[in-house]
Design a protein around this nucleic acid. Structure first.
Lengths: 124, 124
DNA sequence: GAGAGTACGCACTTTTAAGTAAGGTACCCA
DNA sequence: TGGGTACCTTACTTAAAAGTGCGTACTCTC
């Protein structure tokens, strides 16, 4: 079995240390970051929806993660001046690009997690 | 722009809390996990190669991360009884599957990181 | 014979992410 | 008057991730 193709940017196979991509990768692959991005891939959703879908998230982490993703230009926040408050979150174009890559990853994880954790399976 | 397709497993849009996939996702999306898996997607490599390629990793984290990935059946360890010691690491079949999903993600991050971090760009 | 390379394990400390708990607003309903 | 809802913020604490430094056993080079 041979190698998957690496992009030209890292063709030398070295992942530079100071590089901004490290930061972005940390934001994106954070515990709740992945889940929220994938959840939002289905379309605009409000605070309380996200809270339900990312089961177990605290309000603090929800706010914090959303804020980070918004700063990174991946998530758009739309607060409407109505009572009771209503805030809709959605992905930006860039966020959609990202989520398209994250969804298969999360799906794969879902499908293989049982084997991986429970499994006394051989690595052949 | 409409939603990316979500797999049947999470069609309800809820990511259950106790689920083993959370654990696997944490392993895989850990700071060094991603980098090592992508590095190994190019084929078998030894300890010192990986140390070089995942720039900035400490020996402790290299050992620890590799051990976790090995336990998860994603990485295969091949220690040869020679002097000086030589240990080769490679991906299992399952690991290859995963890396095929991670490579585009990392590539995307590389290409967009500059805009995201440096950028005063609008989220349109 | 002094020093460097190889692939670690172990103990300790620091840093960071995440969790917990509480409060705040501005309304609406009973 | 007193909840209840929706969307947060702040302060404090804990748990997990990551970093630091040292030791090992052997061998090959200078």
């Amino acid at each position: 079995m041979k190698a998957a193709p690496l992009p030209p940017a890292l063709a030398d196979g070295v992942f530079p240390a100071g590089c901004p991509s490290r930061t972005v990768l940390d934001h994106v692959t954070s515990k709740w970051g992945v889940l929220l991005l994938v959840a939002l891939s289905e379309g605009e959703q409000r605070w309380s929806d996200l809270r339900r879908r990312a089961e177990g998230i605290s309000e603090k982490m929800l706010a914090q993660t959303l804020k980070t993703l918004e700063r990174d230009g991946l998530v758009r926040r739309n607060a409407r001046p109505v009572i009771p408050p209503r805030v809709d979150y959605s992905l930006t174009d860039r966020g959609y690009e990202l989520s398209a890559l994250l969804v298969p990853l999360v799906a794969w994880t879902f499908e293989n997690a049982g084997d991986i954790i429970g499994g006394a399976e051989k690595a052949k």
